[in-house]
Nucleic acid binder design. Structure first.
Lengths: 235, 235
DNA sequence: CACGCTTGTTAGAAGGTGTAACAGAAGCAT
DNA sequence: ATGCTTCTGTTACACCTTCTAACAAGCGTG
């Protein structure tokens, strides 16, 4: 679990980096993404500005680190919620994981926006962040894939090929491909539901976190709940 | 239609402001929200930095103006799509308006993120922007309210009070209140569907605009279409 | 002990926002 | 037309930012 016995210096270095990141997060919360200033962080740590550049190559590098951590933290929260509700009914699991998602977002709205809001300056997300995003996606997918397949409310033909689902819809075909490529044991229907969960819940949270519901007098919690229940019911 | 015969100076002033805003938008597209620099804009206009402060009180003021314009433009696009499809079937109208929404977002992703991404610095949205957001919301709501009421798939009791919908669900009650407060002639069910359209479509667009679908190998257009059709089918 | 890597310092370049003080042009009134 | 006022643009400056360069001092290790 613990690292390979870091040297005294390494430990101190890690500690300094950690402290800087923590201060950056509070600065992010207080002043927004543009308010994260290497200089200010350094001063609060009792250092001069340039000293921090021994620890982070640039301001972007620091932000990337925050994003990386946030992704990891989100994935761990969702996975933990999944594990904690492992032995419960599928619907209860879905409720647990989706609730964890919302709680994570509301616990630190700026952090949520760091991941899903505007990318900061010109800023291209490093490739490992997309992998991290996938971990969260899989956690949600996982919870949803335990649900029974929805009744499929008589789409076109009643006895039409539901089993030969691959070719039916182009989206289903893409999802089947993707599942194959990533070795995920989910049907396209399950994948579709997980994906829609992802986009729908994000839709609500993204607006909630930015207070876009408040002026409308609508309680975001109710909207979120409605979406979750709709998803559980089948889509 | 045209203003009250602005004076020569006023016209020139408006023209200068317009030019600055246009340059700001291209700067926004090229460098992101933090790249919008009053100084750089002024220089590109053949002015010195401080000169532009005669036209905009601050950088935030300029950004607010861009946001205001963007909201207005979005609302007008949606309303135009609604008008253009006025005499078509309800489902076709919904497809037209939602397509207009997506096209508007993709035509200028940075502009979309200006409205629905991270609020720029610390930045509090001026009150008139929320009103502008509502105009777009109403345009979408309008398209959806022409759809036939969904079959309501046997919720709890079969013959239960669907007419007395107010008290049934807290969300429906909030929506009914809101509709009353704003003099909107929509039922809670219609309102609910419009609101969900808003959040769901935003969910897809928000992720698409930030290329969060690309690394997954999923075509956002298909996801969007799926959401639209689901909404048309009843939610 | 002595050498070297790491960490910290100050100085400074380049660029940003925004204010102050001033010069000149445009509009308006007499 | 002349004069007054207001608007527009200038330069100079204060203060902030990121980030590099050059230098000093400390820690760890051979």
């Amino acid at each position: 679990m613990t690292g390979p016995a870091r040297s005294r210096r390494q430990r101190y270095r890690d500690q300094t980096r950690e402290e800087a990141k923590q201060l950056a997060m509070t600065q992010l919360a207080e002043l927004g993404p543009t308010g994260v200033s290497v200089n200010a962080i350094a001063k609060r740590m009792g250092l001069t500005g340039p000293a921090l550049y021994r620890y982070f190559a640039s301001r972007d590098d620091l932000l990337t680190e925050l994003i990386r951590d946030a992704y990891r933290d989100l994935a761990e929260s969702l996975e933990a919620a999944g594990r904690a509700s492992q032995r419960r009914q599928p619907a209860a699991r879905v409720r647990a994981v989706t609730a964890a998602f919302r709680e994570w977002a509301l616990a630190a709205p700026h952090r949520y926006l760091l991941l899903f809001g505007t990318p900061v300056p010109g800023y291209a997300a490093p490739p490992d962040t997309v992998e991290a995003a996938n971990r969260s996606m899989v956690a949600i997918l996982d919870a949803f894939s335990a649900l029974p397949t929805p009744p499929a409310p008589a789409e076109a033909g009643p006895a039409e090929a539901t089993d030969r689902a691959d070719a039916a819809d182009p989206l289903d075909r893409q999802l089947a491909d993707l599942a194959r490529r990533r070795d995920l044991a989910v049907t396209p229907e399950q994948f579709r539901r997980g994906l829609l969960a992802w986009t729908r819940l994000h839709g609500v949270l993204s607006l909630e976190v930015q207070n876009q519901f408040a002026p409308m007098g609508v309680d975001p919690a109710l909207v979120y709940r409605a979406e979750v229940e709709t998803l559980i019911a089948g889509g």
